[in-house]
């Protein structure tokens, strides 16, 4: 039982960055932009979080800095797509390479290290509950592991369906993604609405990055995001942009991550397990396409 609770706790924590990025990506996609560059904003967020946390001694400022940097990168990225008509896929792949290059450059030139950045006095995300809560049966370990960003991520998941349905921006964002010409015809600026979606995705990816570096390890590494931006993409693609469904898929991916070592000892190769999210997306797309085709023929 404690084993299960421990796996659950690890699952929750490992899910958070994927979930945050996926929330951002799904809002972005509801607005009509497929964001391939979640990874870039995530790694930038992870980096700035460590730097700010070390410099100010405040995890909260660090989190804000991550969100701000992610949002700023997102805004520039959005402009290349909505105003300069760049292909969103190529621009996204390019941004991933560019940001990774910039960070590597900074690391070795400014901090004189390659790959890993350790700074003194990094303040990690605090735990919400005191240590003693882990004695609570069943969910104790989970509660003990909870940090503010994890809580925020799940609150966001809970609020998102409401916000998308009931706020002016939510409605207009969905309309801009579904039928931009309609948005234009009722006198709104669909490009600005889409820019908002990309900035939102940037902010959430930045937060995801902050969680990666500040949740427990307290250092930055170039390989820290390890493709989680793409896993997030896989999650909302598979769940077809539905917030709660996306969260559940993220949880499943987090579980795969958390139980990797145990699966390995059980004889399941972790590398193959790691391909599961991507295979699921392809399978999901095939089923959807097959369904449409059948409907058309009927």
């Amino acid at each position: 039982m404690t084993l299960a609770a421990q796996i659950l706790a690890t699952t929750i924590i490992l899910t958070t960055p994927i979930l945050l990025a996926a929330i951002g990506g799904l809002v972005n996609r509801q607005g009509g932009i497929v964001n391939i560059a979640l990874e870039a904003k995530m790694i930038a967020g992870a980096f700035i979080a460590i730097v700010v946390s070390s410099a100010t001694g405040s995890w909260l400022l660090a989190v804000f800095a991550s969100a701000a940097l992610g949002g700023a990168i997102g805004y520039v990225f959005s402009l290349t797509i909505t105003r300069a008509n760049a292909n969103m896929i190529i621009a996204g792949l390019g941004l991933n390479i560019l940001v990774a290059g910039l960070l590597g450059f900074l690391l070795s030139r400014v901090y004189g290290t390659s790959g890993t950045l350790r700074l003194p006095d990094v303040h990690l995300l605090p735990k919400i509950f005191p240590e003693s809560v882990s004695d609570v049966p069943l969910i104790g370990p989970v509660l003990a592991a909870l940090d503010p960003l994890t809580l925020f991520a799940w609150l966001a998941v809970a609020a998102l369906p409401f916000l998308l349905a009931n706020t002016r921006l939510g409605l207009r964002l969905r309309a801009a993604g579904n039928a931009p010409q309609v948005v234009r015809s009722v006198g709104l600026r669909e490009k600005s609405i889409q820019d908002f979606g990309t900035v939102f995705a940037g902010i959430f990816s930045g937060l995801a990055g902050a969680h990666l570096s500040l949740a427990s390890i307290g250092l930055f590494n170039e390989g820290l995001s390890a493709g989680r931006g793409f896993i997030a993409l896989a999650a909302f693609y598979f769940a077809r942009n539905r917030p709660v469904g996306t969260a559940l898929v993220c949880l499943f991916f987090g579980f795969l991550d958390a139980s990797q070592i145990r699966l390995q000892t059980a004889g399941l190769p972790p590398k193959l397990i790691g391909t599961l999210p991507y295979l699921m997306v392809i399978l999901g797309l095939c089923l959807a396409a097959w369904n449409t085709k059948r409907k058309l023929q009927a």
């Binding site: 290349t80 300069a84 008509n85 760049a86 292909n87 190529i90 621009a91 792949l93 390019g94 941004l95 991933n96 390479i97 560019l98 940001v99 990774a100 290059g101 910039l102 960070l103 590597g104 450059f105 690391l107 070795s108 030139r109």
Partner: peptide, 23 residues
């Protein structure tokens, strides 16, 4: 001078190759 400058250049090339194209 860090090797990463190559990535910076590559990423920028990709982005501006398509920006140009679109416009």
């Amino acid at each position: 001078i860090p090797l990463d400058i190559v990535n910076v250049i590559e990423g920028t090339v990709m982005i501006f190759a398509v920006v140009e194209l679109g416009k």
